[in-house]
Simulated scan of single mutants.
Amino acid sequence: MIFYKIGFNVIKVQFEGSIIELLSSRDSIYEDLARNLECETLDFQDYSEEIVMIVDESGYFKTSFPIFQIKTQFGDIVELAGSIIFAKNIETEDSTDIGGISEKEIFNLRDNLNIKIIGITRGI
């Protein structure tokens, strides 16, 4: 599965975007995403009906994480701390699962994402 990851290099003062590929099963995808974000727990924020943004749930409590302001496809303004992984919402009978996104969706995000950095976390 492929995902799109956005971060911000606080030393170089520039956005960084990358495509990541995880060879995950349905049972291990959440652990693999957490490992990629170097965190223990994940937080999810819908970007659109099909796309979800995944971040470190404790991002605001860590030091030197970028704070992003993003306008979702619903018109909402959300603020997220740390790197963001974009994935697909996959509706199942019982819940919503996470899946990879297509290259077309990644290009669409790169071209149309309304994102800016508004600060840096100080940690606790």
Rank of each mutant, 00 (worst) to 15 (best):
S28T: 15
V55T: 15
D43A: 12
E38W: 01
V52A: 04
D32E: 15
D43V: 02
S24K: 06
V55K: 05
Q45A: 09
L33Y: 07
Y30P: 00
L33N: 05
R35F: 06
E31T: 11
Q45L: 04
V55M: 07
L33I: 15
C39F: 09
A34E: 05
E21A: 00
I19S: 12
R35E: 14
E21M: 13
S25D: 14
E40A: 07
R35C: 00
I51L: 11
L22N: 04
Y47K: 07
V55L: 02
I19N: 10
V55Q: 06
L42S: 01
I54H: 11
L23T: 10
D43M: 10
L22V: 03
S28D: 15
S28L: 12
L33V: 12
Y47G: 10
E50V: 03
L42P: 06
V55R: 05
R26E: 13
S28C: 04
E50I: 01
I54N: 09
I19P: 08
L33K: 05
D32M: 13
E49P: 00
D46R: 13
S48N: 04
V52I: 14
Y30K: 15
L42I: 10
Q45M: 15
V55C: 14
V55H: 10
L37W: 02
V55P: 00
T41M: 14
F44I: 12
D32V: 02
I20T: 10
L22M: 13
M53C: 03
D27E: 13
D27H: 04
Y47W: 07
I54S: 09
I19H: 04
E50W: 01
D27T: 06
N36D: 15
L42T: 13
F44A: 05
S28P: 05
Y30S: 11
S25I: 04
E50N: 13
V55W: 05
E49R: 10
S24C: 07
L23R: 11
F44D: 06
E21L: 08
D46L: 14
L37C: 03
E31G: 07
F44E: 08
R35N: 14
Q45F: 06
A34G: 10
V52S: 08
A34D: 02
D32Q: 02
I29Y: 11
F44W: 06
E49Q: 12
E38Y: 08
S24E: 01
F44R: 06
F44Q: 01
I51M: 11
I51A: 06
D27W: 00
V55D: 05
L23Q: 15
D43R: 03
E40H: 13
D46F: 04
V52G: 02
E40K: 12
E21S: 13
E21N: 15
S48Q: 03
E38L: 13
L42R: 04
E49W: 05
D46C: 03
N36T: 15
E31D: 14
C39D: 10
I29Q: 02
L42W: 07
L37Y: 09
Y47V: 00
E49V: 06
A34Q: 01
L37P: 10
E50H: 12
E21I: 02
D46W: 06
M53S: 12
S24G: 06
N36H: 12
R35G: 09
I29V: 15
E40R: 13
S24F: 04
T41I: 02
E40F: 08
L37I: 05
L22Y: 01
I51N: 04
